[in-house]
Design a protein around this nucleic acid. Structure first.
Lengths: 126, 126
DNA sequence: CAGTATCCGCCATGATACTG
DNA sequence: CAGTATCATGGCGGATACTG
């Protein structure tokens, strides 16, 4: 086998190429349409629900809630609800989430910096 | 505004937080369920159609074709068809694709290495 | 303010069959 | 071998209304 995910003494590493692997689930959450943006937005700074909604243009309430719950369940996002009225809820990255952001942000940044070099039709309009 | 994608002299950078931005399109291709795996598989080494299909467990022919066409159209993947019979087609990363892989592979690798630290139910079975 | 509940369309995805 | 064509489905995702 030539699976670099198994070789080189990385026995603990899970291979996303295997169909049943849990890393695919996490990868799907992390790289989901909105997951990426939520993680990056929270890496910029902790934010409240409404702030997130405004920061991430076009996200619906449903998808924001759904994405936040998935990322919280994975252990990447921390949800802090102050029991006040009116309600106030703060979202931030956990230490694990911050580690993830260290490798995710460079990707998002690279794409942002290099769209104009791709041959996506829309990219020309930059 | 506190948009790090606009500040710090990065005027050419596109912000994926803006709903109409082309970087979202590219980001969606790159972070799509199968897009990630295809790019990483091709970063390991150039591969033929059938090799890709076998490397990426669970991908259907339709999705492989569709994903490859999207990534080729973006300029990340090079398709080389030798006009032989039976047909032989090689896929590889373009220079741009290789640059992308430099930031994408660390992400995939991190997830693979750290699934066991997440709280995904399935992850415990590792 | 910070969500949940509900309805619904549509398209992404997958299975199958077929072809040069 | 390397695809394309076709069809069926389910769930992703959006819009709207409602609540503590």
């Amino acid at each position: 086998m030539d699976d670099i995910w198994q070789s080189l003494g990385r026995e603990r590493a899970a291979s996303p190429f295997a169909s049943g692997c849990a890393s695919r689930v996490v990868l799907d959450h992390v790289t989901s349409k909105w997951g990426v943006l939520v993680l990056v937005a929270l890496d910029e700074e902790p934010r409240r629900w409404g702030e997130l909604r405004r920061r991430i243009e076009g996200i619906s309430e449903k998808m924001l809630a759904q994405t936040l719950r998935a990322l919280e369940s994975d252990g990447f996002v921390l949800r802090e609800s102050h029991g006040t009225v009116p309600p106030r809820v703060d979202y931030s990255l956990t230490p694990l989430g911050r580690e993830l952001a260290e490798v995710l942000v460079p990707l998002v940044r690279w794409v942002g910096d290099n769209v104009h070099r791709t041959t996506v039709p829309l990219a020309a309009s930059a």
